[in-house]
């Protein structure tokens, strides 16, 4: 019998939960620095790298593309989006 002993870490804290079980705040922390899609109430999408955001959901994006009805309509090196216009923030790459 070459049964190895049970792993010693059964009583150590569990590994961090997968991101999809976290709170909204955990999600937002997790997507900073990642590619995201920001949809506005108007239906316009902004795809870019999320630099940071604040409690009002004001957003700073880098390397931003503006998409209207599937077509790129503008590009911005940096963009500040006023939070009241934001419908959702979606991760555009694996977290």
């Amino acid at each position: 019998m070459d049964e190895s002993p049970p792993p010693p870490d059964v009583q150590s804290p569990p590994p961090p939960p997968p991101s999809h079980t976290g709170s909204p705040t955990d999600f937002l922390k997790g997507v900073v620095g990642k590619k995201v899609i920001v949809r506005l109430n108007s239906g316009v999408d902004y795809r870019g790298i999320l630099s940071c955001l604040d409690g009002y959901m004001n957003i700073a994006l880098e390397q931003t593309e503006e998409h209207v009805e599937g077509k790129i309509t503008n590009r911005y090196g940096d963009a500040f989006i006023r939070g009241n216009n934001v419908l959702y923030i979606s991760a555009a790459e694996e977290l």
């Binding site: 506005l40 931003t64 911005y76 090196g77 940096d78 963009a79 500040f80 006023r82 009241n84 216009n85």
Partner: peptide
Amino acid sequence: RGDGVILVSPPSRT
């Protein structure tokens, strides 16, 4: 007035 603002983009620093 701020309530009309959607997006502000600085000049590209390139």
